[in-house]
Design a protein around this nucleic acid. Structure first.
Length: 591
RNA sequence: GGGGUUGUAGCUCAGUUGGUUAGAGUACCUGCCUGUCACGCAGGGUGCCGCGAGUUCGAGUCUCGUCAACCCCGCCA
């Protein structure tokens, strides 16, 4: 019955004269009385079928009875349309099917929203009726493009001797990094699996096993709060390689990325990705994943205002804070209201305010200009290279807050002034991340990336006389890949030396016993001939979101969760019956 | 845990200073229509104004609480 099915969107003028059969959904009905047009939609597109009541009253009557989203099968002959009836808006607009028969395969309730992508539908409704939402062109495109990205990735990596190997979803919980999703074990009561935050340990084991190039397109799980680019389950293109340098990995990834970009957008990336160190990224952009599509680079100003009498500056500087800022040649577009709003807006970054001065004709005016001495003014002019009318924004606080504020405000101001070119794809590598981070609260070090990351080769010795002060100087062989200010992947060279590995564990306050309990299998493996190795993982969802210019990761995921982690379609998560709980020896404590 | 935005017809949204019967477009239903293509024309039904309190003679509108979706901080590579 369906073996001779043609795809609606794939019929062309060259099929005219052919008898075809199409099956799909009623996209639109135009009933003119004696003649009825149905647009039939399937995954490939739409095509118009014509029913003439003077040819077949029965068929016309059936066509008249169908409604939106009914599933029908239409057989008929493809015909070129006459010139005056061609519809240039659809790809099959130069042809139509002259129907011989119509068969209603299934009815549909009136859909809660139009399948037409022109309408902006409330996301809540879309998520509840995701099966209908996925019929819309935008979602269909996202799913097909996502498939293509995965396909070229598999082809690319397979051609380079990577082997795709699956790793366990039911895993051992390791409470480092993100919060784990736990899965109770029925066979081992009171014990739990964890869903993998990433296949990190297993892919390293695979290197020891001799699969010198591994990859996997794999779901990862992190029980943390959601954002527009963060879902509790997400997909990584995960890779690990043996006998490798960071440069070799970066080269391979760059090539892969270019293939994906070409496949999805048709664009050639004709530059090699700039490499920027972590320190440079932080000082110029205030974050490790900078958006370089616009300027507004940050400049250090603490030295300029070292002797400032302006209380806001002097008190912050005397208590270990910093003064930094950026200048924007705004062409007078920044209104008083906007800058006023900014000083409120920065509070979400923990800043107390957002001091500014206007620069015009070589002079400062407005804002805090009266607190700035002439000497300071000339230094500011030089530091920011001021020539044209501009506004200089400052942030004054502890370094962390200053960075967050300026990073956030760069983006805000650039957005408000329409300075961001949406067609740009600015990739870059961030390297030389700090290996460790000292937390004052609990007086211990934490691994910035993860504890298996190797330090720079010549820095391993620093572990022996580490202090909270010099710890920041110790860099990791870690690298992040960034697109338009969004981290889309990251990786590192791993520690292959069991001695160095246990030294790192000790440094982050993990005893031998504790390390053994958590990672014994990795530590064991390292002692049986571990090759030097390293790898990287790319966030597929984020890459798709950016390349398809969607404003949320949910737009490229078939069945995403809401910000509270719920699936509005299936209603997960949900309570379970007591029998299930008792089988697992679990009791729910009511809060 | 915290800050913000939004919530009115199936959908998208308007609703003035608190004022009597809550509106538009679209969808839906009925009829007419033989070249439409977001077909057209005529007619019709459509509301827990998110939910709960409060203020008031009177609340879609004001106040408080609450729920949900989204954005952000914290959290998270």
């Amino acid at each position: 019955m369906f073996s001779d099915r043609s795809y609606c969107g794939e019929l062309t003028a060259s099929d005219s004269g052919r008898d075809v059969s199409v099956s799909g959904w009623v996209d639109r009905k135009r009933d003119l009385g004696g003649i009825i047009f149905l647009e039939i939609r399937d995954v490939s597109g739409v095509i118009q079928a014509v029913f003439d009541s003077s040819v077949s009253a029965v068929n016309a009557e059936t066509a008249d009875s169908v409604r939106s989203e009914y599933v029908i099968q239409v057989k008929g002959r493809v015909r070129k349309r006459s010139d005056d009836t061609i519809n240039p808006n659809i790809t099959t607009g130069d042809i139509e099917i002259v129907a011989d028969s119509i068969n209603i395969l299934n009815r549909s309730m009136v859909p809660p929203f139009s399948i037409d992508s022109r309408d902006n539908i409330n996301e809540e409704v879309r998520l509840k009726y995701r099966f209908l939402d996925l019929r819309r062109d935008d979602m269909k495109e996202a799913m097909i493009m996502r498939h293509k990205a995965m396909q070229v990735t598999r082809n690319f990596l397979s051609a380079r001797r990577f082997i795709e190997i699956e790793t366990p979803i039911l895993n051992k919980s390791t409470p480092e990094g993100a919060r784990d999703f736990l899965v109770p074990s029925r066979l081992n009561r009171g014990e739990f699996y964890a869903l993998p935050q990433s296949p990190q340990l297993f892919k390293q084991i695979l290197m020891v096993s001799g699969f010198d190039r591994y990859f996997q397109i794999v779901k990862c799980f992190r029980d943390e709060d959601l954002r527009n680019d963060r879902q509790p389950e997400f997909t990584q293109i995960d890779m690990e390689l043996s006998f490798i340098t960071p440069g070799m990995i970066m080269e391979t990834i760059e090539e892969l990325i270019k293939v994906i970009v070409k496949e999805i957008t048709g664009k050639e990336i004709d530059y090699s990705f700039p490499v920027i160190t972590y320190d440079e990224a932080m000082s110029k952009y205030g974050k490790d994943a900078p958006d370089t599509r616009f300027g507004l680079e940050i400049r250090e100003c603490s030295d300029i205002f070292a002797n400032s009498t302006f209380n806001v500056f002097s008190s912050a500087l005397s208590t270990g804070g910093v003064v930094r800022g950026f200048a924007v040649e705004d062409g007078g577009k920044l209104s008083r209201k906007m800058t006023d709003d900014y000083s409120e807006y920065v509070k979400k970054f923990g800043a107390k305010g957002f001091p500014m001065v206007k620069f015009n004709d070589g002079k400062f005016e407005g804002g805090i200009s009266k607190f700035i001495t002439d000497d300071e003014k000339s230094m500011v002019i030089e530091r920011f290279g001021l020539k044209n009318p501009a506004v200089v924004f400052f942030s004054v606080d502890k370094e962390k807050i200053v960075n967050a504020t300026l990073a956030g405000m760069r983006l805000k101001v650039a957005g408000d002034l329409d300075m961001i070119d949406n067609d740009k794809l600015n990739f870059l590598w961030a390297t030389d991340f700090p290996l460790l981070e000292y937390h004052e609260e609990d007086k211990r070090y934490y691994a910035v990336h993860h504890p298996f990351t190797a330090p720079l080769p010549d820095q391993a010795g620093m572990l022996d006389n580490l202090t909270p002060e010099n710890a920041v100087k110790m860099k990791a062989q870690a690298y992040d890949i960034v697109l338009n200010g969004v981290e889309i992947g990251g990786g590192s060279i791993r520690i292959a030396d069991p001695e160095l590995q246990s030294k790192i564990f000790k440094t982050i306050g993990m005893s031998d016993e504790e390390a053994k309990m958590k990672f014994s299998f990795l530590l064991d493996a390292l002692q049986y001939g571990a090759p030097p190795h390293g790898g990287l993982a790319l966030g597929l969802d984020r890459i798709m979101m950016l390349l398809l210019k969607r404003n949320s990761i949910r737009e490229v995921i078939a069945f995403p969760k809401t910000q509270k982690g719920q699936c509005l379609m299936s209603d997960a998560p949900s309570p379970v019956v007591d029998d299930q709980l008792s089988e697992l020896s679990i009791r729910v404590v009511k809060k």
